[in-house]
Amino acid sequence: MSAKGLRLLLAPLLVLASPALAAPEFTGGPEFASDTGHVLLSWESDEPVRLIIADNAEFSGAKPLYEGSQTSFFVSGLSNGEYYLRLDGVQGESSQPAKLNVVHQSLTQAIWLTIIGLIITVGIIATIARGARDD
């Protein structure tokens, strides 16, 4: 008998003998918020997981972000919007979906502070370039 055949024959016994694995679970969830488009996701799991992300709660068109045995993953570069995340264990158990709400900082505030920063910098350069005229 081939190894594959043996595995198929013993599979029901192995399932019965294995302790039940708990479903993976996000740490600090299920709701996350970010004003910078990035978030560090971490979770607890007894087995390797697949982390998926979608823009709808039904996870249609979901994209895989990570697959493996790590217990954290850094997501960045997300635009404004609501995102849904889920951990799928390799044996089929899935976590409760987590929701990530991304609302970036105010662009108006950012532009104003950039202009202020530019004015200060130009002022410093001008002061140094002009030098000590009243020596």
């Binding site: 488009g37 570069g77 997300l78 635009s79 662009l107 505030q109 950039t114 920063g117």
Partner: peptide, 26 residues
């Protein structure tokens, strides 16, 4: 495809960081 905001010209936190970092360094 996966991190569009990282290429965005009007990324608010990143814009604020430009002169903040420059002035911190100065």
């Amino acid at each position: 495809a996966s991190k569009p905001e990282l290429l965005h010209v009007l990324f608010p936190a990143a814009l604020m960081a430009i002169f903040n970092n420059l002035l911190f360094g100065l």
